[in-house]
Simulated scan of single mutants.
Amino acid sequence: MASFSFLPAISASSTALTRVVFPARPTLQLKRRFAVRSSYAEAGTRDDYSSAPIDVVADVKNERVVVLGGSGFVGSAICKAAVSKGIEVISLSRSGRPTYPSSWVDQVTWVSGDVFYVNWDEVLVGATAVVSTLGGFGSDEQMKRINGEGNVVAVNAAKEYGIPKFILISVHDYNLPPFLLSSGYFTGKRKAESEVLSKYPNSGVVLRPAFIYGKRRVDGFEIPLDLVGEPAERILRALENFTKPLNSLPASDLLLAPPVSVDDVALAVINAIKDDDEFGIFTIDQIKEAAQKVRA
């Protein structure tokens, strides 16, 4: 039902971590000294050559993004989009590096680890943003731990390390009645959202897509979810003026909420990374708009 059944779940078991050490460099200051020589050859004026050093300080922002769950369906799309935009990417997930060959895969630093046990020194130092795709299904307790507690741990770690931006992939509420929203899946997601918006009131971003479609790899096979999701999105958007009166009905969005392309989610993340004025909760339509800004 929700869009994150494809996202990597984080277990409570400890996982070996590949040691990766990065120099801290979220911002480089380049200082250059150079001389300026002036020459005057006007009538009655003696040529005068002089030089004086001028200090120029340039701030260059080097984007380094940590993607939690970067080897999963949504996470890998985010990593790929970030690499295509020249952003340095570190992925943290239990499975580590994907097994399929691709040129963008070689440009990501893959770290195998568990968000509950990782040594954050080896992941967060020097990062300018953290993107979390953590989520999954299971028992109520498992979903609260994966969707909620795992993300809360990550948000607090990012805040402690001074990371300026945190982006969370959450989920649309589908107009569900309160008793259904009290399930572990949604309560975990909303707990994570609350932590992001509390710790990052002016820079935290929460994306709430509905069903996410695209080409998903599972055990070496590619599942073309776009064959269903893309036509459904087009049809629902074409009919939205007629279906709006139904939007107030409980659970209506289970049928009426347009699916979201995994590429749109990834580009909306890129937009949030690059635009410091972007923060808060993004609805399905706002995710689409944010993606269009990057495509433009």
Rank of each mutant, 00 (worst) to 15 (best):
Val123Lys: 02
Ala52Cys: 11
Asn247Pro: 04
Asp276Met: 11
Gly229Gln: 05
Pro258Gly: 00
Ser76Ala: 12
Thr243Pro: 00
Asp121Thr: 09
Gly70Gln: 05
Phe6Leu: 13
Lys199Phe: 06
Pro98Gln: 06
Pro259Cys: 04
Ser91Asp: 09
Thr45Lys: 14
Val269Asn: 02
Lys85Asp: 10
Asp140Ala: 13
Phe211Thr: 10
Arg46Pro: 15
Ala9Ser: 15
Tyr213Ala: 05
Glu141Lys: 08
Val105Phe: 01
Tyr185Trp: 00
Arg295Glu: 13
Val105Gln: 08
Pro26Asp: 06
Val262Tyr: 00
Phe137Arg: 10
Asp276Trp: 09
Ala158Pro: 03
Asn202Phe: 11
Asn271Phe: 10
Ala12Leu: 13
Ile90Leu: 14
Ser14Phe: 11
Pro201Gly: 07
Leu30Cys: 10
Val294Met: 06
Asn147Tyr: 08
Lys191Glu: 13
Lys144Ala: 09
Gln107Pro: 04
Tyr200Phe: 14
Pro258Trp: 02
Gln29Glu: 15
Gly136Ile: 06
Ala154Asp: 02
Ser194Asn: 12
Arg208Cys: 09
Val265Pro: 00
Val115Pro: 01
Val262Gln: 00
Leu249Arg: 02
Ala296Asp: 14
Lys144Val: 13
Glu160Leu: 12
Asp47Pro: 11
Ala268Met: 02
Ser183Pro: 04
Phe282Gly: 00
Val130Thr: 06
Val152His: 07
Ala2Leu: 11
Ala52Lys: 15
Ile87Asp: 07
Pro258Val: 06
Gly96His: 02
Lys144Trp: 10
Ala77Glu: 08
Ala291Lys: 02
Trp110Asn: 07
Thr15Trp: 07
Gly96Cys: 08
Arg217His: 11
Arg237Thr: 01
Lys159Glu: 02
Val205Trp: 01
Asn247Thr: 05
Ser183Cys: 14
Lys293Asp: 05
Ala16Leu: 12
Asn151Gly: 10
Phe242Ser: 02
Val60Arg: 13
Ser39Leu: 14
Lys80Ala: 11
Val123Asp: 03
Phe179Thr: 10
Ser13Phe: 09
